[in-house]
């Protein structure tokens, strides 16, 4: 992605290659993420989306390539990055409360041995308030709904007061209210010049929620502002030609003049999320040009 004027470079990825047991999961990814964007990462199953953000978070060692957070290595900048993992990555029957989970976000700042105190409690409660979960502070996490659990994870990230937020499918399996609440929150963060990188599972809402998108299928297919990059052609390249499209503009041009404007920036597509998962192995890449 070319550097946009007036923005800092939050994340820079160069030639990132990650392999698992000699099979490549990510090939030679180059990406520049400016600050103050809401970027989605989309791609079929097995495309390496989770691997990608884990590589940025220094959870996975790449076979080649470099990653820089505001110009420095992750281990020098970790206080600037907050991670919201997939909801399924923890056992929610663990004996702990929402407040407790959020306070774990402050452990890094506390360092070794120090216990969280009144100050940490206050900060954690404030974060819970921001996600509307203050009434559930002492609730055992197994008693929370999916959407509530997701909000707790989000609060845990908020409390870290980071510059960059890496999220893995935060909208997966949450109710509509929670989804709206999350996207509102993300937009607020963006307005404060925070950088949000979100692995997203639902092609239908990419255009509505995000301003930048990265199309990934082991290789980088394309990345940049949604109007430029989120095109039918690119989606076909990413999903191997098995995506059904519904065009929003042709039929409604009479009723909704707004859609005509979108033509100018390239077609706004809402893909009827039927991207086939099995297409992950057929990263069409250059094949479809024949």
């Amino acid at each position: 992605m070319p550097q946009e004027p007036g923005k800092r470079t939050a994340i820079e990825v160069r030639d990132l290659t990650v392999a698992y047991r000699e099979k490549p999961v990510l090939w030679d990814i180059d990406l520049t993420v400016p600050s103050g964007v809401l970027m989605a990462i989309v791609g079929p199953n097995g495309a390496g989306k989770t691997t990608f953000i884990k590589a940025i978070l220094d959870l996975i060692k790449p076979a080649a390539g470099q990653i820089r957070i505001f110009g420095k290595r992750y281990d020098q900048q970790r206080q600037l990055v907050a991670y919201v993992p997939q909801r399924g990555s923890v056992d929610w029957d663990f004996p702990t409360s929402s407040l407790d989970v959020v306070m774990m976000g402050l452990y890094g700042r506390l360092g070794w041995f120090r216990r969280p105190g009144k100050r940490e409690r206050r900060l954690a409660l404030a974060a819970l308030e921001k996600v509307g979960m203050q009434d559930f502070a002492d609730r055992q996490i197994s008693q929370l709904s999916g959407g509530q659990q997701q909000r707790v994870f989000l609060a845990r990230a908020l409390v870290q007061d980071a510059e960059i937020y890496m999220m893995d499918e935060p909208f997966q399996g949450v109710d509509a209210t929670t989804e709206r609440a999350i996207i509102t929150l993300l937009r607020e963060l963006r307005a404060a010049d925070k950088t949000l990188v979100v692995v997203h599972h639902d092609l239908q809402t990419v255009a509505e929620y995000f301003d930048h998108v990265m199309l990934l299928n082991v290789r980088l297919i394309a990345a940049g502002p949604v109007p430029e990059v989120f095109t039918e052609e690119n989606l076909r390249l990413t999903y191997g030609g098995r995506v059904a499209f519904l065009r929003a503009d042709d039929d409604e041009s009479g009723e909704n003049g707004q859609n005509l404007e979108s033509d100018a920036a390239g077609q706004q597509i809402s893909a009827a999320g039927s991207a086939s998962e099995s297409a992950s192995e057929s990263a069409a890449g250059l094949r479809t040009r024949n």
Binding site: K23, P24, W27, V218, R219, A283, A284, G285, L286, R287
Partner: peptide, 8 residues
């Protein structure tokens, strides 16, 4: 290079 990409 092309072949490798297609394989994955």
């Amino acid at each position: 290079a092309r072949q490798t990409i297609v394989e994955t």
